[in-house]
Simulated scan of single mutants.
Amino acid sequence: MKTTEKEINILGLPVKEAEVIAAELNILLSNFQVYYQNLRGIHWNIRGKRFFQLHVKFEELYNDAQVKIDLVAERVLTLGFTPLHTFEDYIKNNKLTVGKNISKDTEAVHLVIASIADLLKIERVILEESANINDEGTNSMMSDFIKEQEKTMWMMKAWSEEEI
C-alpha cells in the first residue's frame, strides 16, 4: 500500500500511528500526575528517623516527575494532539496505586518502587510503538526516562533491602 501525503504528519510520521502513540503518552501523562501527587504526599507526611534523608529524596523525585510531565505533554502537542489536563482524565487513565496518608519510610519507598515499575511498563510499550514508526523524538524521550527510572529503582531497592 502506497502512503499518500495526507497520511503523513508534518513530522514525517504516519498520522494513525502517531495518534496511537499520543494516546499512550496521555496514559503516561495521567500516571505521572498520580505519581507526582503520591510523591508530594509522602514528602509532606514522612516521619521517623530517616525523615531528613527521605524528605529531600522525595522532593528530588517529585521535581523530576514535574519536568517529565511537561515533556510528555509537550510531546503530545508536538505529535499534533491534545494532552490530557483534568484530574478526571488522570484518574480514569491511572494504573498506579494511590498512596494515601503514608508516613512510614518503608511503605513510602515501596510505593515509589511499585509506581516506577508501573511507569516503566507504560514507557516500554510507547518505546516499542515509537520505534516501529521511526518516531525518534518519542523513542529518545522514553529511552531517557527508562534509563533514569531504572537507576532510581535500583537505588530505592538498595535502600529498601537494608531494612530486611
Rank of each mutant, 00 (worst) to 15 (best):
36 Y>F: 15
37 Q>G: 00
40 R>P: 06
40 R>I: 12
43 H>P: 12
44 W>L: 10
44 W>V: 09
44 W>Y: 09
45 N>V: 00
45 N>Y: 11
47 R>F: 02
49 K>M: 08
50 R>G: 06
51 F>I: 10
52 F>Q: 02
53 Q>G: 01
55 H>S: 03
56 V>E: 15
58 F>P: 12
60 E>V: 03
63 N>P: 00
65 A>R: 08
67 V>R: 11
67 V>G: 00
68 K>F: 02
68 K>M: 08
69 I>S: 03
71 L>A: 14
72 V>N: 09
76 V>T: 09
77 L>I: 11
78 T>V: 11
80 G>C: 10
91 I>C: 00
93 N>S: 12
94 N>V: 04
94 N>T: 05
96 L>S: 06
99 G>Q: 00
101 N>M: 11
102 I>N: 05
103 S>D: 15
103 S>T: 12
106 T>I: 14
110 H>W: 06
111 L>I: 10
113 I>C: 03
113 I>M: 09
115 S>W: 01
116 I>E: 07
120 L>C: 04
120 L>T: 08
121 K>Y: 01
122 I>Q: 13
124 R>S: 08
124 R>V: 08
126 I>C: 04
129 E>H: 14
129 E>Q: 13
130 S>V: 05
132 N>S: 15
140 S>I: 02
145 F>G: 07
145 F>C: 11
145 F>D: 05
146 I>K: 10
146 I>Y: 04
148 E>P: 02
